[in-house]
């Protein structure tokens, strides 16, 4: 028995010597340690965020810790943050899956002198200093309608596909679209708003109905992501490719095929990589004391000067993914 134990112990020696530290211990030196928390680790959206975050960390010479939940256990984000607190990181940048739950852990980090910033999905305002806001309601509404208007020559009928009629995000974007239309495009007319329950099939069915009910329809705008490919499929099957334009809010990867076929003209979203980049730039500046509450603008490396409204750092106007550029993005 003793011999077996000795053998086991000896076996671990080469393993130990094969491992080596490739980074310095956190908090032990002048190097800034930034912890970056996604809602979930496997999601392509956050993998892309991380890419931008890594680029910013390399530029700044900061160490980046990236960790996030891999399961739906709501306690996981808190555990990761508490783990970072005990590691003594300088600043935490977090996207909250459970707003209130994560805020408990973030407040604790602040009490320990760690700076906290949120991105993508905000926590409670008292649990962080700034929120990096990827897009305002007006920004999204304007971008959707401006793109659609440019495609239809600023006149004609259009319809909207939404998630459901009570969704607060979607309703705010629709309100922004309506306001923009009244202000800038008097010759355009919103004929209908249809809910798709966040289902692609339902969106397809509703769009088919819209196409037959409104033969003069020029454009369909989807304000929910499953609605974009759903509307595109309906337009394609009705043989109206190019006649009825499709514009919507969604991930480029989900719409690539339709965009390349010319069914969908524009997919609107922020540049996710830039969101990660800006978040890390802001986190580092906050930790160094260069970015303070009350600031109205912030210089974020290669992105240039970004606007700050209240405690929201704005990523700026959303980006339109079209036939010409969609191949450059993989999220």
């Amino acid at each position: 028995m003793k011999r077996i134990l000795c053998t086991l112990a000896l076996c671990t020696v080469p393993f130990l010597s094969a491992c080596k530290k490739s980074g310095e211990a956190a908090g032990g030196d002048d190097q800034l340690t930034i912890a970056f928390l996604p809602k979930s680790k496997g999601n392509q959206y956050f993998v892309t965020c991380e890419k931008g975050a890594r680029a910013a960390a390399t530029e700044l010479g900061a160490e980046l810790l990236f960790d996030g939940p891999t399961t739906s256990d709501p306690a996981k984000q808190n555990e990761i943050v508490e783990n970072w607190i005990s590691l003594g990181v300088d600043v935490i940048a977090a996207a909250a899956e459970n707003k209130d739950g994560l805020s408990t852990a973030l407040r604790k980090a602040q009490a320990e002198g760690i700076k906290v910033i949120t991105y993508d999905a905000d926590a409670q305002p008292d649990a962080r200093t700034f929120f990096v806001n990827q897009a305002t309601e007006k920004g999204i509404g304007d971008a959707l309608l401006d793109n659609a208007a440019a495609l239809v020559g600023k006149e004609g009928e259009f319809a909207i596909i939404t998630a459901n009629l009570t969704a607060s995000n979607q309703n705010a974007w629709i309100a922004a679209i309506k306001a923009r239309q009244a202000e800038l495009y008097p010759n355009m007319k919103l004929v209908d708003i249809k809910p798709c329950d966040d289902l692609k099939d339902k969106a397809q069915q509703e769009t088919t109905n819209l196409l037959s009910a409104h033969p003069n329809l020029k454009a369909v705008i989807s304000v929910c992501s499953p609605g974009v490919p759903g509307a595109a499929e309906a337009v394609k099957q009705a043989g109206k490719t190019g006649v009825v334009k499709v514009v919507g809010l969604g991930l480029p990867s989900e719409n690539k095929a339709y965009v390349k076929e010319g069914v969908t003209q524009a997919v609107i979203l922020w540049k996710v990589e830039d969101l990660g980049y800006l978040t890390i730039q802001a986190a580092a500046a906050l930790a160094k004391g260069e970015l303070k509450p009350g600031a109205t603008e912030f210089k974020a490396g290669k992105l240039g000067t970004m606007k700050i409204e209240g405690d929201n750092i704005l990523l700026g106007t959303p980006f339109a993914f079209t036939k010409e550029n969609i191949d450059q993005f993989d999220f």
Partner: peptide, 10 residues
Amino acid sequence: LGEARANAGI
């Protein structure tokens, strides 16, 4: 956690 949700203890 400071939050009570249906997915606690999954």
